[in-house]
Amino acid sequence: MKKEKQALRRRMLALRDKTHDSAADQAMLKTLLGLDLYQKAACIAAYVSFGTEVDTHALIRQALRDKKRVAVPYCVPKSHVMQMLEISRFPEDLHPGTMDILEPDPEKSPVVDPSDIDCLIVPGVCFTEDGRRLGYGGGFYDRYLPKLAAMSRCAALVPEAMLVDSLPTESHDVRIPKLITERRIIDCLNIE
């Protein structure tokens, strides 16, 4: 299964590189900002996008302007542990970290308890409409998500081109309850 996931990951990342559309990113962000998931959240956690990932930089900036607590991932070196650390400025509070992705300084940014997170935006390479997710292979989010107070607080920003019919999954793979594309919102909790 590992080889099957790696092959699909390579194929979908190449497709994402070819099809990335900043207008679609903006449409997904606009939809998210209008949802109760965002509006009622006191604490937002979001990945810091890189390359052709759906851009989260505007989301992070908007959440800070909206006076929400904002947390971004920090991968503890030489471990498979991810924490969400609170930032107050973007991008000033960040520096290149694991895989050159911007992350906060653990000496300056406090850890946010997972139970405090009201809205978590989850990255992924591709997704199915029932919320199955193919990540980057590190398992960081699959280990982190069960710590949240409620999975219903999670969503993913997913270009339509990154939706697939099926994914190879394992027992530890966590389903995402809500997908936001440039065209629609998919409530995965009601799909079996």
Rank of each mutant, 00 (worst) to 15 (best):
G51S: 00
I185Q: 14
A27K: 10
E4N: 09
Y38H: 01
V81M: 13
I176Q: 04
A155Q: 06
L102W: 07
V125C: 06
A149S: 12
V72M: 02
G139T: 07
A149F: 03
L37A: 11
T31M: 10
A23H: 12
P110H: 06
V158L: 02
M162V: 05
T52W: 01
L189M: 15
R65C: 09
K5Q: 02
L134F: 09
V54S: 12
G135P: 04
C126E: 08
I87K: 07
L29E: 08
A45L: 09
G34R: 10
A161D: 13
R175H: 11
L167V: 05
S171N: 09
M12E: 09
R183M: 13
T169Y: 00
S152F: 06
I186M: 06
A41G: 08
R184S: 11
Y141F: 11
M82I: 08
A155L: 12
P73D: 01
D55Q: 11
D66N: 07
R143N: 07
E53G: 01
Y141E: 02
P159M: 10
T98F: 15
V158P: 03
A45V: 08
P146W: 07
E86S: 10
H172I: 06
C119T: 06
E129G: 04
Y38V: 00
Y136I: 01
E170N: 08
L163M: 05
P110A: 06
A150P: 05
E92A: 11
D55T: 05
I185L: 09
I44V: 15
L120G: 10
M12S: 05
P77L: 08
T19M: 12
P114G: 02
G124M: 02
A156E: 06
V111D: 14
V54E: 02
Q62K: 09
S115I: 14
A155G: 15
E182C: 04
K147T: 15
A58M: 12
K5L: 01
R9C: 03
G124I: 04
A42C: 11
M1T: 12
Q39S: 15
G138L: 07
A161T: 14
K2C: 14
L13M: 15
K30E: 13
P177R: 06
K108F: 15
S152K: 14
T52Y: 04
P159H: 12
R184A: 14
A27P: 04
L94K: 07
D118R: 03
V48K: 08
P146T: 00
F140T: 04
P159Q: 11
G135F: 00
I87Y: 11
H57Q: 10
T181Q: 08
E103H: 03
A149T: 14
Q62N: 02
C188R: 08
V122A: 02
L145R: 05
V54D: 05
R184T: 13
Y38Q: 01
D118W: 14
L85M: 06
I117R: 06
Y136G: 01
